[in-house]
Design a protein around this nucleic acid. Structure first.
Lengths: 209, 209
DNA sequence: TAGATTGTTAATCGATTAACAATC
DNA sequence: TAGATTGTTAATCGATTAACAATC
């Protein structure tokens, strides 16, 4: 449908982060040039990114921070609350469940699931207890969960994804090291890939050129 | 120096992941077409990516999995052990410290640091105890740490990065939501950004088109 | 008015893909 | 030999950047 470059969407989330900080610091407007400097890109990139969605600035003046925060919220779809479930209560699943920043950004963790009976029933945070995977489908419907985090081992990930998709989950964040076959949007986060690409930059010293 | 597209490096790490699984399954060769299908890209992309570094396949046959694993190891720089320290023993810092996959991939967590005196001295895993930030520089030298993970709040991240760079750290994985000013390679991992780009795909349904 | 900064177009740059000769 | 598959070139596609008229 809309032809928005993926890098543009990612940068929008990063502008949002900067604008939040600026607002907190009491600023009320900023130029594309200043914003660009904060994230080490060109000012024309900032303006181009925003121009896909409208004209939010004032020539000669810059952008109103409050206004721009609101616009980016609407563009990204983070003006509303999203209910999130986590599949896999291992190391990563539990860390995400406890991660305060996520809730601060309008993503509410409503459930955590695992197959390990020693984990089921354990409280992760006040009001958040690990549930049995067998109750997954029912839980999704009853709690209107829309986003799921897959934090299972790779072997389990595809069958979990199938169940999620079938139950009406609309998007997946996948921490498992595998490419999923499914028809809803997926964001992949393989922590080990970041380590590997980092050391490639280190050994080839090409990060700056 | 070398002109390797960043996406190529990232994909190399992903091919590596597939090849590991295939090797484990007892396979010993694979074509670019089959590998491409596993990660939902074009086969010419796989061949192009590899061709930046050499000719590792056999026409008519495909790629030897063992051989290709070894070549990618050398390209990425993961054939050697890397010593890693973690700054910030909060939620994310501790999860990374406990994350087995990282050690499996030749990254050894040798130290974890925090400024909170209630945390210092606490054992995270057998042999890994939270240290005081004041011992950072000495520790880096004595343990030949080369890679650092910044898992502090955003406000602390820049000054931590400055100290790391000055102490000879060669690359940084930054979980703090901020763009750092520094002269060594940095990989940014902002978990909330993945959630935000995901919901943009969900609301705009443009993920597939 | 002069200076600053946007929004947008056109030019440039870089990455992906198709195509095919080489070769197993 | 026929079929499969690589390595590489050229064509295409998409994203970034420069430039500048519009306008605050």
């Amino acid at each position: 449908m809309s032809r928005i470059p993926k890098p543009t969407v990612r940068r929008l989330a990063i502008y949002y982060r900067c604008l939040e900080r600026l607002e907190q610091q009491g600023e009320d407007s900023i130029s594309s040039k200043a914003l660009a400097q904060m994230v080490h890109i060109k000012d024309s990139q900032v303006r181009k990114d925003l121009s896909y969605f409208g004209s939010f600035g004032r020539r000669g003046i810059g952008y109103d921070i409050r206004r721009l925060l609101g616009e980016i919220q609407k563009i990204l779809g983070i003006h509303k609350r999203w209910n999130v479930i986590i599949i896999g209560a291992g190391n990563i699943g539990q860390a995400i469940a406890r991660f305060k920043q996520i809730e601060k950004h309008n993503f509410q963790i409503v459930g955590v699931f695992d197959t390990d009976h020693r984990k089921i029933g354990k409280q992760i945070t006040p009001g958040l207890v690990i549930s049995d995977m067998s109750s997954l489908e029912e839980f999704i419907r009853q709690n209107q969960a829309e986003i799921a985090v897959i934090a299972t081992p790779a072997e389990a990930a595809q069958s979990v994804a199938d169940r999620l998709e079938k139950s009406g989950i609309k998007g997946i964040i996948c921490f498992a090291p595998i490419t999923l076959n499914c028809n809803i949007p997926v964001e992949y986060v393989d922590i080990t890939v970041f380590f590997k690409t980092l050391v490639h930059s280190v050994v080839s010293q090409n990060y700056n050129i």
